[in-house]
Amino acid sequence: MDKNNLLKVSFAPHAHGGQSVSQIMLYVIVALLPAMLVGIWVFGPKALEITLTAVISCVLFEYFTQKFILKVKPTINDFSAAVTGVLLAFNLPSNIPLWMVVIGSFAAIVIAKMTYGGIGNNPFNPALVGRVFLLVSFPVAMTSWPKPFAYTVGGVDVITAATPLSILKEGVKNTEALTTIMAKMPSYLDLFIGIRGGCIGEISVLALILGGIYLLYKKIISWHIPVSMIFGILIFSGILWLTDPSKYADPFFHIMTGGVFLGAIFMATDMVTSPITPKGKLIFGSLIGILVILIRVFGAYPEGVSFAILIMNAFVPLIDRYTRPKRFGE
């Protein structure tokens, strides 16, 4: 009997459901496509350029770190580095220099992922670490956004527009009345479709919701984190708004602006850095929502989704520990 005819022996089960890590990551990339298309439509080819740069540099960083420094088999074929790249690019303004994107990818892959042992072991969302790294290193480049459709009239770097949230923050700082601030805002319809200043991937609520529905349908994410996070924002900002509507923005403004939907659907639901049980997910999501509003209303930064998610990432082991599933028969 030659070696190929020997009977294989292993433990049960001898069947597998068929879903693999690379498949999950591919579904996530597909779900991110509508938001990417809106980003390219609104910000022009520069958006595509940045996304490609981020993806390629993330994949290469992962490959080289694993091949030459850690000396393990590279895991780039699971597409997790590609997902990190897309998400990182989605969190950047479209006029950022490409070399900064490469630095961000370095922070995301090498610092936030590989130093902890690669996929599955990182406590913090790599793409968000990359973004925050860039935000504290290059605050100006990271907070000047081109106006929507500026590329069609030329001079991408020149015409910049503030995001709705920074308009709000500036206005509050200058003690303007809330009504005058709100008058400068894009309409809710524009916010929903994505015609506004902001990072590449965060602008279109519609496209992000489409991607989210796709992921829910494919059972890659569950509804717990996005829903609880958005409800957390709605309820907490709603309470503030009810106490003083002339001082605080209304809750719908809060969920429609900034990176709330990108964060809720794609960043907070990252499997590695979110709790495992439904109960834990609900706690995790709603606390992110509350933190987002705390940072936006009382903090120094106009936007707080990245920081809120990163802070809650640190609590995931604790949440997992106290939200064990109910064992059968106990």
Partner: peptide
């Protein structure tokens, strides 16, 4: 044949 084993990505499907 069993597929190659990789790191746990904490997807929570087993739970």
């Amino acid at each position: 044949k069993r597929e190659e084993v990789s790191n746990c990505i904490r997807c929570g499907r087993c739970v």
